[in-house]
Computed example of a mutant assay.
Amino acid sequence: MTAGVRHLLGLALAIVSFVGTIVICALPQWRIEKIFWESSNVAPQVFIEGLWKVCGPYSAHTECKEYEEPFVSISQDLEVARALIVIAIIVGVIGILLGAAGSKFINFVPDERKRSKIAMASGVVCIIAGIFVLIPISWTTITTTTIQNNFNNFLPHGTLELGASLYIGWITTALLFLGGGLLCSSFICQDGTD
């Protein structure tokens, strides 16, 4: 695989993972809490926590409320995750812009040596963005499983599950690391071949 193809593939993976980071930031499914009742005829109550709002049966139907409203508080792991995911989005934008500037197909920087250094910087920035996604995803996963183990002791008729955002976050992290690695490796192959 030539360095140019490797660079384009890394940039494409960085863009896809950037979209994934935005999805996990916006999607309100980080943690799902289900409470079952003694009688099997009653449907379980489901509370879904996200970074910006919590959804649950607050009235006759399921409603989402922001954390800033009274009586709705955000847990510490989700509050830190909110900040780190926003930082990851900002860092991801910088990585993508550097990747586009360091591309061999866009003549933004005429000097080949500087262009390859920009590509290397783009890869490093994408890997840093992956770390900013990995930390809250891992912390929330560990916190949720720890709470689930303690949750069964206090509420035997309830479950606490990982939400879809965490699974998307794991994939996004892998794509950020892979894309960043491909962008960095395009710097190593300066002659254009392996």
Score class of each variant (00 low, 15 high):
Glu33Trp: 12
Thr172Tyr: 11
Gly50Val: 00
Ile89Tyr: 13
Gly92Ala: 11
Val42Met: 09
Cys184Pro: 07
Leu27Lys: 06
Val91Tyr: 06
Asn153Met: 08
Val86Asn: 11
Phe108Ala: 05
Cys184Ala: 12
Gly95Arg: 06
Leu178Ser: 11
Met1Leu: 14
Ala43Gln: 15
Ala164Ile: 01
Glu69His: 15
Asn107Ser: 09
Leu8Gly: 00
Tyr58Trp: 10
Glu79Cys: 08
Val19Ala: 15
Gly4Met: 04
Leu8Met: 09
Val5Arg: 15
Ile48Met: 01
Ala100Asn: 08
Ile24Val: 05
Asn153Glu: 09
Thr144Ala: 06
Val23Ser: 14
Ala119Ser: 09
Phe151Ala: 07
Thr143Gln: 14
Pro70His: 13
Val86Trp: 11
Gly20Gln: 04
Phe47Arg: 06
Ser103Cys: 02
Ala12Ile: 04
Leu13Ser: 06
Gly92Ile: 04
Val93Tyr: 09
Ile15Tyr: 11
Thr62Arg: 15
Cys189Pro: 12
Ser116Phe: 05
Glu112Gly: 15
Phe36Gly: 03
Tyr167Cys: 13
Asn153Thr: 04
Ile87Trp: 15
Val23Cys: 12
Gly20Asn: 05
Ile168Thr: 05
Phe18Glu: 01
Arg82Phe: 11
Ser75Gln: 07
Leu27Pro: 01
Leu166Val: 06
Ala3Met: 09
Cys126Ser: 10
Leu160Glu: 03
Ala60Val: 01
Tyr67Lys: 15
Thr141Val: 07
Ser122Tyr: 03
Tyr58Val: 00
Glu66Pro: 13
Thr140Leu: 02
Leu51Pro: 05
His61Tyr: 13
Val93Arg: 11
Ile74Thr: 07
Leu182Gln: 03
Ile135Ala: 09
Ser122Gly: 06
Cys64Thr: 01
Leu134Pro: 10
Leu155Pro: 09
Phe71Ile: 08
Asn41Thr: 05
Ala3Cys: 09
Gly130Pro: 01
Leu9Gly: 07
Glu161His: 14
Leu160Ala: 03
